[in-house]
């Protein structure tokens, strides 16, 4: 049985499959992608250099990472040569196979957020400006609150005007405590206090906000390392998760973001935000492939329950669904 067939069956079995929202959000890209792919195959009878250029463009359009596209196309070329494929109709299955290979890299990763069985779990949020860290924290706090966890928030963005208030509003909405200092104070000190009071109040989960910073600002990245160190020092093994918030509209720069934030804070997972627009953040495939950082959560809107666990199968299936449907059964 072919891999995609298996995947399809599996998804059909799960009647509660992907939420409508998720599907809705992905439809636009998927339509685009599939139409393009079908056009491509229809337009080009023979597999030649031009065909590959078109193919590259389709992949680029989904913001799939530069090197990933190059590698994929390179491998396809080899495969075409090896199997002596001349007709574009015959290349479809080869493309599918290669997409599967990108995808299968995902399977080994744990896409869940690991909570400590006993005691406090600390989750640290990092990322560049305006990607949606604070909003995601609000939503995540809400979801843990629903699970009857005692959640606390640390207002570590002491830099941006109104950031502390923004987190406080979320705290009120969700009904959880927010530990804060004044605007302009040392974020590491906020973290120290937050960890102390989370321990004292026997909280289950402490979610720490930090100020957005561009990854090329060396001093700000050092500050972030310090924030992390303070948490580490107070609770060995913490922060248990370091989540990098990534805007789905971001292009190739997302790779640099992931790389440098990983170096500074050992990022354990990605939250892909704003996936309800037309951009789909295909770069996460490349990030997974090159840096091994899995996506753990996706943001699909501004409401409290618009945060969902990332399901790699559904994501890839959603992106390439119609193309997959065309895969001829091999068994």
């Amino acid at each position: 049985m072919s891999f995609f067939k298996k995947l399809k069956d599996k998804l059909t079995l799960q009647q509660d499959t992907m939420s409508d929202k998720f599907r809705e959000g992905l439809t636009k890209t998927r339509d685009n992608f599939t139409t393009k792919m079908n056009d491509l195959i229809a337009n080009y009878r023979t597999v030649d250099e031009e065909f590959f250029e078109e193919l590259e463009e389709i992949l680029f359009q989904a913001d799939v990472g530069f090197d990933t596209v190059m590698k994929l196309v390179e491998e396809l070329k080899m495969e075409v040569k090896r199997q002596n494929i001349k007709d574009t109709k015959d290349i479809r299955s080869v493309i599918s196979q290669k997409l599967v290979e990108i995808y299968q890299g995902d399977e080994k990763f744990n896409n869940d957020i690991t909570l400590q069985e006993e005691g406090l779990t600390v989750i640290l949020f990092v990322g560049v400006n305006g990607v949606g860290k604070t909003t995601t924290i609000g939503k995540l706090a809400h979801s843990y609150k629903q699970d009857n966890k005692k959640v606390m928030l640390a207002a570590g963005d002491t830099f941006r005007a109104g950031a502390i208030e923004q987190l406080e509003v979320w705290g009120d909405r969700v009904g959880v405590d927010v530990i804060k200092h004044a605007e302009g104070s040392d974020p590491a000190a906020v973290m120290f206090d937050a960890v102390q009071s989370a321990k004292a109040r026997k909280a289950d989960i402490l979610i720490c906000d930090t100020a957005g910073r561009l990854q090329n600002k060396v001093n700000l990245m050092k500050e972030l390392e310090k924030v992390k160190k303070v948490i580490e020092r107070e609770i060995p093994g913490a922060p248990h998760e370091v989540l990098l918030a990534l805007d789905a509209t971001t292009g190739q720069n997302a790779m640099t973001q992931a790389k440098i934030f990983k170096e500074a804070t050992n990022v354990t997972g990605i939250v892909l935000t704003k996936l309800d627009g037309t951009a789909k953040g295909g770069i996460v495939l490349a990030i997974k492939q090159e840096l091994g950082i899995p996506v753990k959560l996706v943001g699909l809107g501004e409401k409290m329950d618009d945060l969902q666990p990332f399901d790699a199968e559904k994501y890839v299936y959603g992106l390439f669904a119609d193309l997959v449907d065309e895969v001829p059964d091999e068994d």
Binding site: R160, G162, A163, E165, Q166, E302
Partner: peptide
């Protein structure tokens, strides 16, 4: 009026 504390953010900038 939608993002929490967006007004506050602008007010703070205005004060600065």
């Amino acid at each position: 009026i939608y993002r929490p504390a967006a007004i506050k953010q602008l007010e703070t900038l205005g004060k600065q």
